[in-house]
Nucleic acid binder design. Structure first.
Lengths: 227, 227, 227, 227
DNA sequence: CATGAATGAGCCTTCATTCAT
DNA sequence: TATGAATGAAGGCTCATTCAT
């Protein structure tokens, strides 16, 4: 998964910014700290991540994160709010595109989900959020309301469209969206859990997603032979 | 999910037991402490769980857990080793039963998985293990080798049998077992993540599993109409 | 120094005691516990010595020492009082013996000191007492008044006798007794400090004492050529 | 022993120093903490010394020692390594001085030993090291190899020189150096053991050393009348 | 008498957070 | 803005001591 390490930093350079280099640096600090926090939280989890490690990863020292974030919890919350939540927007554009079958839409949604989040360092956040949801209910609520729920709403609309058009069988919406999204989330989790420790065989994300879509589309289709 | 709260009987109060209360403790203590640890780890995660909380949950004081476990990490490891790993045995018996179609076997495996682990307080352990795998690689290795791998081997045998008998399509084994098991693991995770906080709508496990099996068996079947 | 390990247990058996074996055992317990404590304190020092180790050394369990001693400090105090202080008695008999020159008396005192204490497991006690004097002033006071002071009084009497008879030069009594006794105490300390760790070359006690007496007697003598 | 309390200037208060109080600390802290540790270890011994006491003695709080030392044991080791071992250097210069008789050299060595270490707060370290040698074998080894052994080598060279020049009798080197150094070490120990508790009469170090040298030089001399 | 399970005070150590520079 | 020395609350763990058996 070569895109994994490259995808994240893109689009944040400001080559033509007239302000002097130093204050540009200043402006970038919160982002840099969040990215560092993402790395360290991903590796150690929330509690075992030390602020100093995050600071060092960001190239600053112990006190600096506190210039931009009230405390550790706020860094965590900002991680979700600033980095992850905006990513949900990609879904809207997908649904806006007209003239696509439900199957095709589902395919595109899954692939976009992967390329926007799963193949990115952001893929550490679902695991982190899951691990800490009960310790930080407000963040969990935010994550659910602004990320999970909209994502599942997209899925649900696709299922409804497919059912309406006769392309998909009717399945109970609520459990279905969970069932469908679960393997994608688990793939992200898996990548941050066992693969970095060289535990177990590698899972190839592309093949995994192909297999997932193959099973899902056949499973949903009213004309399985053609799926 | 009514079974959830009932399945894991603590046995901590036995007023009518003729054996003396005090002398019985010695034998029962490790179990009681592990069950308490399961609760507290499930609620807070490893790092945020205090030994004293675990002790109090078990009805003892700070020092007592250390009479039975070397330290906090050993409690965690024992949780996996003593409580979770034995549960994998149920799979063998399932495969031993003769004369079942692959679809039926898959159904039974999923349901057994749920009743043995998912509907139990043990269902907190996959989430805990996922969150802490990188902090405790040896425990993660153990969990993978003794729980995940055998479980996936079962699934793989079912897929192979189904393909051999013509009941299932041929699918790439490796990603398929991940894809198939992912929703079950995610259901356990979900129950310990968002449902206890009253975040998001409840997910009914039975309906979820029905939907999952419905989608999977259709997706795998060579004669989808009859799945 | 083969006597070292053997000297201590001697003379405590009660073969002809009519009481039954069990109550004899009972009667011997405090002694056994003190001897065990001596071993463990010698090896680890007061604070690092665990009551359970002492108990195990004595062949009993955690609670038993508390049947005979109020607490850890009392075990330490009893060690000094019961085992060490009685040993000072040997000096009286030495002084009682008539018709000895001061030099010969000094020789006998040093050798008796060594055989009665230095070559014994009791030789651990001066080091222990020194290390803990400031934490247990009452015990230190006892040790000083009942062991050090009488011992130094013996020495002083010898020096005075020697000076009176013209065998010894006149030396300031107070510092002299310290100077003379110091090497003997240091030999005991050395044996319990660096020799058990195989650190540094061994010191042969007999040769050490010979050299000490040689230097001392020459140093004290009014006719050094004949010393 | 008036030098005793004065010799080890802590330098902890420098009100008229123009450098800012706060920025100066960083450089001075390790020294300050070691000196505080020296005091507290001397008073209580290793195990009974609390890090918080050391910190408070140094004018800082619980966490600060850990900014400079990994743990309690490292503070102990640093005490030996940083404060005591350098003191052994004084011996070299003594031996370098030409044209001195062996007796005069021995006199100077003993007096230097006393002024450099014995009359200093450092004199607590031999007692501490003796008490803890078996609990910290590596530190004991270091202490032996870098402090005891070089010191004894100096003594041995003096004895050999004296024997070669005919000033001293021939005495077995190995026990002799132990015997000769023992009273000096015991004087240090004594000062930190019974004198602070007002137990027993005071020992005047100067008189003690005079007496020691008198006895030793007479004891070693081939012409005792002139010693 | 003896046991050993249990207690709980106490200490070492960590680390989020502050603040003087 | 940034630093990093210092703080001090908090938690893991030990072990002297107790007491029900």
């Amino acid at each position: 998964m070569p895109a994994f390490t490259l995808a994240f930093r893109s689009g944040r350079r400001m080559h033509n910014c007239p302000i002097k280099r130093w204050s540009r640096r200043k402006a970038a600090r919160p982002q840099e700290i969040l990215e560092a926090a993402l790395d360290v939280f991903a590796e150690r989890g929330y509690a075992a991540a030390k602020i100093e490690d995050i600071a060092r990863h960001a190239g600053v020292t112990r006190g600096t994160p506190y210039l931009y974030f009230k405390n550790k919890e706020e860094i965590f919350a900002a991680l979700i709010r600033e980095l992850l939540l905006p990513k949900i927007a990609f879904g809207e554009s997908l649904m806006a595109e007209p003239g696509l079958g439900a199957g095709e839409r589902l395919r595109r949604l899954v692939r976009a989900w992967w390329s926007e989040v799963g193949a990115t360092r952001l893929s550490a956040l679902p695991k982190l959020m899951i691990a800490e949801a009960r310790n930080f209910p407000e963040v969990a609520q935010l994550y659910h309301d602004e990320f999970i729920a909209p994502g599942q709403a997209l899925l649900q609309r696709i299922l409804e469209e497919g059912a309406a058009s006769g392309e998909f069988r009717a399945v109970p919406a609520d459990p279905a969206v969970h069932v469908i999204s679960a393997p994608i989330v688990m793939l992200m989790i898996w990548q941050h859990t066992f693969m970095p420790c060289c535990i177990g065989h590698e899972v190839d994300p592309e093949l995994y997603l192909d297999t997932l879509l193959d099973l899902l589309l056949r499973g949903l289709s009213t004309h399985p032979a053609s799926a």
